[in-house]
């Protein structure tokens, strides 16, 4: 399916979940947050939250900041 991940077009398997996307995009990060169409998807729900065509997903991780 076609969706937008971090502002760019992305192609994922039709049955992909948020957990699949995080595993692909943020390996090695243990403090990741995901927004799907603007709303937070709690970590506890990643594995049972399917993605849908056209979703806009943000996969975020820590960085330095003031």
């Amino acid at each position: 399916m076609q969706l937008t991940v971090n502002g760019d077009a992305a192609e994922l398997a039709d049955d992909a979940t948020v957990a699949d996307l995080v595993a692909q995009r943020a390996p090695g990060h243990d403090r990741v947050a995901v927004a799907r169409n603007g709303d937070v998807v709690p970590r506890s729900s990643w594995a049972r939250t399917p993605l849908a065509p056209g979703d806009a997903v943000e996969v975020l991780a820590p960085t330095a900041g003031g």
Partner: peptide
Amino acid sequence: VTVALRRVEASATGSMM
């Protein structure tokens, strides 16, 4: 200590944490 969140491609590696 303050920290921020950014898209994972632009984020710090895990070692800052």
